[in-house]
C-alpha cells in the first residue's frame, strides 16, 4: 500500500461575514482568495480534507470528529444575521480515529466525537463552503484545545501527518484561523472595515511576508511575541498545528488574500507541496 501524503496546505479564515452576500472591499478580496484556493483544491482531487479550526474549542484535550455523517443547521452565536449554515458532511472517521490514537500515543489527551447533533463550528463550515462547496471531498476535523501550547499543537499536527501517511490517502490540510483578533466591539458599516489597530496590521504583514519567503521556522519562533502583541486568534497555535502536519518546511506560502474582517486580520495562504 503506498504511503499517504499531504498534497496541499492552507491557512484560511473562518468568520461568517465571508459566507454572507454583504459587499465590502476586504471581504470580497478574501472571498476571491478563498474561491481561488477552492479551485486549486478541486484540481488536486484529494482523498480527504483535514481541518483544524480555532472555533471548535475543546478543554478536555484534543477532539476528533468521527461521526460519519454530521448533518444539521448551524447559526453563528455572534453573527446569527449573517445567514444559516446547513451542513451534511462526509467524515473520514477512520482517519480521525487513527490520528486520535497516534496523538494519544504521543502523550496528548484525546477524544473522538461521534454524536448525532454535535455542533459543527462556524470556522469549519465557512472554510468548507468555499473549498468544498459541492461536498465532493470527505473531511476530517480536529479541535483547538484552548490549553495547548505550541509544542502540543506541533505534536497534534505530527499525529495527523502520521495518520495521513499510514492511510495511503492524498490529503489537503487546512488551518482555519484568524490572524490578529482585535474585533471592533461596536456595529460598523462593512464597507468601512479596517484593521482595528495599525500595529496589528504591521504584525500580520510581517508574518505573512516571512511565510512568503518560506521562513516558517522563524514564524514559529516569533509566534509567541506575535500572539501576545497582536492578540492573535488562539495564540496562532493553528499555525503550529499546520507546521506539525508539514514538518515545518521551507516551502513558501502564497498569500492569496489578506484583509480585515470586523477589525481582525484574515488571510488565505496556500502552500503548494
Amino acid at each position: 500500500m503506498p504511503q499517504g501524503s499531504i498534497i496541499g496546505a492552507y491557512i484560511a479564515p473562518g468568520l461568517p461575514h465571508l459566507a454572507s452576500d454583504i459587499a465590502a472591499v476586504s471581504w470580497d478580496a478574501l472571498r476571491r482568495g478563498f474561491h481561488q484556493a477552492g479551485e486549486h483544491i478541486h484540481a488536486l482531487q484529494p482523498d480527504v480534507l483535514v481541518l483544524y479550526s480555532t472555533q471548535w474549542i475543546s478543554v478536555l484535550g484534543h477532539s476528533f470528529q468521527t461521526h460519519p455523517n454530521p448533518q444539521g443547521l448551524h447559526v453563528d452565536e455572534n453573527w446569527y444575521e449573517m445567514g444559516d449554515f446547513p451542513f451534511d458532511l462526509r467524515v473520514d472517521a477512520d482517519l480521525g480515529t487513527r490520528a486520535a490514537a497516534i496523538a494519544a500515543s504521543l502523550g496528548l489527551a484525546t477524544k473522538t466525537v461521534n454524536y448525532h447533533g454535535f455542533p459543527i463550528d462556524t470556522g469549519t463550515l465557512v472554510a468548507l463552503r468555499f473549498v468544498n462547496p459541492a461536498n465532493q471531498f470527505p473531511v476530517a476535523v480536529v479541535s483547538c484545545n484552548i490549553y495547548a501550547g505550541q509544542e502540543d499543537s506541533l505534536t497534534l499536527g505530527k499525529a495527523v501527518r502520521q495518520a495521513i501517511a499510514e492511510s495511503s490517502k492524498r490529503a489537503v490540510v487546512i488551518s482555519c484561523t484568524g490572524l490578529s483578533a482585535r474585533f471592533f466591539t461596536d456595529e460598523i458599516a462593512p464597507y468601512n472595515d479596517r484593521l482595528s489597530q495599525t500595529e496589528d496590521d504591521a504584525w500580520n504583514r510581517r508574518i505573512l511576508g516571512l511565510i512568503e519567503q518560506g521562513r516558517n521556522a522563524e514564524v514559529l519562533a516569533m509566534s509567541g511575541d506575535y500572539a501576545r502583541t497582536a492578540a492573535v486568534d488562539m495564540g496562532f497555535k493553528a499555525f503550529a498545528w499546520l507546521m506539525g502536519t508539514l514538518d515545518t518546511p521551507s516551502s513558501p506560502g502564497a498569500v492569496l488574500a489578506y484583509g480585515p474582517v470586523w477589525g481582525t486580520g484574515a488571510a488565505v495562504v496556500e502552500y503548494q507541496l
Binding site: I57, L60, Y115
Partner: peptide
Amino acid sequence: LSVDPIFP
C-alpha cells in the same frame, strides 16, 4: 437538541 461541545 443541545449537544455540549465540551461534554457531548
